[in-house]
């Protein structure tokens, strides 16, 4: 690689949280997960009073177009429509019209229908039937064991998030606080190669040519607001990517100048993962 280092921050001196408390899942999380066991026997009931989790059919009138529609289905507390409005629906009754305030403006809501999905209490037989075909659930045969497994997975996810999140934070710190000597030609080659890879991906996944996409299609298929924004983003990514390869080479005991970009990119981050794993202490909260 032609890109080099003027000064490098020692990753072992980057500050981070060394003690992480692992939480257990709350009752709502467990309820949703346990529902999987009896999903095939769930029932939907028409009810009168609105509770969290109910599906309501609303007719809304207001000056705001989003809240001026007939027959809008909303899951109360689901947060997809509007959390502020959803919170005010709790306790209303089927057929009731109420004046609510959303974003500081009045909204008239009529509750046309209220439905509640009910799941039976799971049994050990439900667990056996479910886990027989569920990836990673082999050998789980009782409701209690299933509950334990869900809790273990929840805690394990937090552990992994802490490790990989910390790795990312350290990488960001080192890349931003070190001083790199970028080679313009290498930056341009990296950008061109990344752009060509993206073109190939769009061709392969969408059957379209990146160069022929409109801005709307670029937003839909690639996630960038426009072609200009996409190219700017990819150019900006070239510097931290090349810097990370040089840094990885050094920490893996190699001379970056003796490696190609691809060779440096393949060296990986095992050194950083080991350091973070060895440095973080996990404590589980009391149940």
């Amino acid at each position: 690689m032609k890109t080099g280092i003027n000064s490098l921050v020692d990753y072992r001196e980057v500050p981070f949280e060394h003690k992480v408390v692992l939480r257990y899942p709350d009752a709502e999380y467990m309820r949703k997960k346990m529902n999987a066991l009896t999903r095939s026997r769930k029932e939907t009931l028409q009810v009168e009073d609105v509770l969290p989790g109910d599906v309501v059919m609303l007719t809304l009138a207001s000056e705001m177009p989003r809240f001026n529609k007939p027959m809008v289905p909303v899951t109360v507390g689901g947060g997809l429509y509007d959390a502020e409005l959803e919170g005010q629906l709790i306790g209303l009754k089927k057929g009731q019209t109420a004046q609510l305030t959303v974003q500081g403006q009045p909204v008239t809501v009529t509750v046309k229908d209220v439905r509640r999905t009910m799941f039976p209490e799971p049994t050990d037989e439900d667990v056996k039937a479910f886990t027989a075909d569920a990836y990673g659930m082999e050998g789980i045969e009782t409701v209690e064991a299933y509950r334990e497994k869900l809790q273990e997975e929840f805690v394990s996810d937090q552990r992994n998030s802490a490790i990989y999140g910390t790795m990312q934070d350290i990488m960001d710190y080192v890349l931003t606080h070190s001083d790199w000597n970028f080679d313009e030609g290498e930056l341009n080659d990296f950008y061109e190669e990344s752009l060509n890879n993206l073109k190939e991906q769009v061709r392969s996944e969408n059957g379209m040519e990146l160069d022929e996409l409109s801005d709307a299609e670029i937003k839909r298929f690639v996630g960038a607001d426009s072609r200009e924004a996409l190219e700017k983003f990819m150019r900006e990514q070239a510097e931290p990517m090349l810097a990370s390869f040089v840094w990885s080479a050094v920490c893996n005991g190699k001379d970056p100048a003796a490696l190609s970009v691809d060779e440096a990119a393949e060296l990986g981050w095992d050194f950083l993962e080991k350091y973070v794993r060895d440095s973080i202490t996990f404590e589980e909260e009391e149940r």
Binding site: K32, K33, N35, A36, R39, K42, T44, G53, V55, T75, G78, L80, R115, T117, F119
Partner: peptide, 8 residues
């Protein structure tokens, strides 16, 4: 499946 439970 979980989303369908919540948003039928």
């Amino acid at each position: 499946e979980e989303l369908e439970d919540e948003f039928p």
